[in-house]
Design a binder for these strands. Structure first.
Lengths: 224, 224
DNA sequence: ACCTGAACACCGTTCAAGT
DNA sequence: ACCTGAACACCGTTCAAGT
């Protein structure tokens, strides 16, 4: 039985905590046991008493804000320089979904949290709006499209985080089309190795992009 | 100062609680003060001690399950009988989003919760898959499209529930396209009276449906 | 069977005391 | 300035006691 050497009271000789260390540890905890984390767990993991955390973060919500920034920072901005524009949009969307889908239990919480105005996400948003405006959309339309994409992406991340058989009708026999579809998709999953959530995401992303191209084509032909 | 008459201990002469009464009261609490609810608040609202609730629900999650069923029950199934098929899909999607957007704080929680196999939602899903199969899609594809629509709808409900200026870049001058778009949309909001979240939802829904029609047209012309 | 009342094992957070 | 330790005001949930 190894004795833990306790820290004495009073200011330690060298600082043990920092905001980034707290945020990163919290993210680790979320990844390991996905059930959410407590300030007490977080403190234990950092070898510190719970109250010590409050020297570096305002409260638990503040920790979440930190986490959100870290995750948002992982969305690949570089993909937005691809050609053509719809490929750039697709690559960005996939990177966005992956960044959030990696941390299931927090998606919902993070998704409703407003971004800080200094956030890293705005340059990406600016680039996307610019892309769409270049391709002929009005500024306001471009923003609506951007938000629509985000809604789809976050909804898809939520879906990827949901229970695997969220939509299982069991043995009921009053929904034949649905159960047939469920069975067929099962086969598609084993054949392609692509999970249900990924299939649905690609289907939706494909539809959104196809919709954009169709809208553009229609607009261009009407302009003659 | 009015004296509250307390109930004596022991089984009351007539039953005061029921599962449905608990679930409905919980939903009321969510609607009033959107911050979520506690079992103690719920009990107070029902004029009962917290422990009494556990005679009718297993735990707090069980209450959420009940709430989810109530909300899901409000999604209009009737709209799915409209003509043509894409109008039916659009009407269903709007009804779905409205049902969830009415209860902001719970969307996230509810969205990740698996449906019971006896749930009311399956007949609607069956109808939608049938609709798409009739229009030429494979069963597995139809299911993927359905899930993609749901992801978009729930993501949009989340967006509608988010802070109104979730995407406000403040005064930064390094994102000109974005701020221009933000300004233009502001004007569009005041001119049309349609909120930002509704605009984005209609934009995305339009793209998804347009994508479906384009996919169908492409398939039909390839079949010649 | 279905309520009260007391209790248990938790939370997030505050704050004085210590270095 | 930055930690410990003790405390506060909460949670959800359990369970014996009562009718």
């Amino acid at each position: 039985m190894s004795e833990v050497t306790h820290r004495r009271v009073g200011r330690p000789s060298e600082q043990v905590l920092s905001r980034v260390r707290i945020v990163e540890t919290a993210l680790d905890l979320l990844d390991e046991h996905g059930e959410g984390f407590g300030m007490r767990d977080l403190a234990r993991e950092l070898g510190v008493r719970p109250s010590a955390l409050y020297n570096h973060v305002a409260n638990k919500e503040d920790v979440f804000r930190g986490i959100r920034e870290v995750i948002a920072g992982r969305i690949s901005q570089a993909e937005l320089e691809r050609e053509p524009w719809d490929a750039a949009l697709a690559a960005w969307a996939r990177s966005y979904r992956d960044a959030f889908a990696a941390h299931p239990p927090t998606i919902a919480l993070l998704a409703v949290m407003p971004f800080d105005s200094e956030s890293d996400v705005f340059p990406s948003y600016d680039r996307i709006v610019g892309l769409l405006v270049t391709e002929g959309w009005e500024h306001a339309e471009a923003l609506n499209i951007l938000v629509a994409f985000e809604s789809f992406i976050l909804g898809s991340a939520l879906d990827a985080a949901a229970a695997p058989d969220m939509l299982h009708a069991g043995d009921r026999d009053d929904v034949p089309e649905f159960t047939a579809a469920y069975r067929d998709r099962e086969q598609l999953v084993t054949r392609t190795g692509t999970g249900p959530a990924d299939q649905a995401f690609e289907a939706g992303l494909g539809l959104l992009l196809r919709g954009l191209r169709a809208e553009q084509a229609e607009r261009d032909s009407a302009a003659d």
